[in-house]
């Protein structure tokens, strides 16, 4: 099963009359990955998800989920894919448990298995003591957590979350993200769409950046940073205009250093890790100077902003 693409699209395009929602998308997600769809509203994240679920048909191109075409074999796809829509809703006059029971039965679970699973999941999402309450009285955050339980009830191989944290408070966001992260640990391939970058950064193994229907970049957050700036995640700025060649060589020998360049009167060392200590030692040894260093950590945001400036 290694290297098997759980989700795969080839030249996937979706047009709504003139408007191109998804443009020639090629996407491959491996089993066990936590993949983040990033991008502003209207970038085509949700449309891609809808096509993955088979809710709408692609204008052209190919979609495969677990090797199945969601438009042709929706049942096979939906058996393994759990989906939490952006505006998740439950039957307000049913209790949390009843809502989950309904989903479970639609998945053909027998009462015994279902009962056990519901108990376990409600415990996990912290709604155990609220299981008998009607969902109509739930807060938005509680509904989102119930939504995660709802996705998990079928024990999916793939879980897709469309904006799972929109509109809930930071504490709720944290809870939701932790739950999703826990899922990922259970070998569930997770696809999460969000415009809130921090969260994605925290839990995603890989992200895809969407802009105007295209996925302009994909990869791990580190790699994206490198790709974007051809650099590592950390920039250490030395207020030294020129370094001698042997100093340069010494610096480049520090493990993790990716690049070294001179910008204006500063020397900028890019590295994958925070190597400021080693760098300090090297510079002190070579030049006898104790320089003041400025360490910059790249945030995904910057990567993100860069791509949007470009496109």
């Amino acid at each position: 099963m290694n290297n098997k693409f759980v989700i795969e699209t080839q030249n996937l395009t979706k047009k709504y009359s003139k408007f191109v929602a998804v443009d020639d998308l090629n996407l491959q997600i491996l089993e066990g990955e936590v993949f983040g769809f990033l991008g502003p509203n209207g970038a085509g994240k949700t449309t891609t998800i809808l096509m993955l679920m088979g809710f709408c048909e692609p204008t052209s191109g190919l979609v495969r989920v677990n090797g199945n075409d969601p438009a042709r074999e929706p049942i096979k796809v939906k058996k393994v894919v759990g989906y939490m829509p952006e505006k998740i809703g439950f039957y307000d006059d049913l209790t949390a448990r009843e809502n989950l029971e309904y989903t479970g039965r639609l998945n053909g679970l027998d009462s015994k298995t279902l009962g056990d699973r519901i108990d376990k999941l409600l415990e996990e999402v912290g709604l155990k003591d609220k299981s008998g309450q009607v969902v109509g009285k739930f807060s938005h955050g509680m509904k989102q957590r119930l939504g995660i339980a709802d996705v998990m009830i079928k024990q999916p191989g793939v879980a897709i979350f469309d904006e799972p944290t929109s509109g809930i408070d930071p504490e709720g966001t944290d809870q939701v993200l932790n739950l999703i992260q826990d899922m990922a640990k259970q070998k569930v391939t997770v696809l999460i769409s969000s415009h809130q970058l921090h969260q994605v950064q925290r839990i995603c193994t890989r992200v895809g950046i969407f802009s105007k229907g295209k996925m302009v970049a994909a990869g791990s957050v580190d790699k994206l940073g490198r790709d974007a700036f051809r650099k590592g995640k950390f920039n250490i700025i030395l207020p030294v205009a020129q370094l001698t060649d042997n100093v340069r060589d010494d610096v480049m020998k520090i493990p993790g250093v990716v690049a070294l360049e001179t910008i204006a009167n500063n020397t900028v060392v890019t590295a994958d890790d925070d190597i400021s200590k080693q760098l300090e030692d090297v510079v002190l040894r070579s030049t006898g100077l104790r320089v003041q260093m400025k360490v910059e950590e790249f945030q995904l945001e910057e990567v993100y902003m860069k791509y949007f400036k470009e496109s």
């Binding site: 679920m53 049942i75 759990g82 829509p85 809703g89 439950f90 639609l106």
Partner: peptide
Amino acid sequence: TSGNLSRLLSQPIYR
């Protein structure tokens, strides 16, 4: 409008 439809349709049932 209640947001149940897409949740419902994501279950392994025919539409």
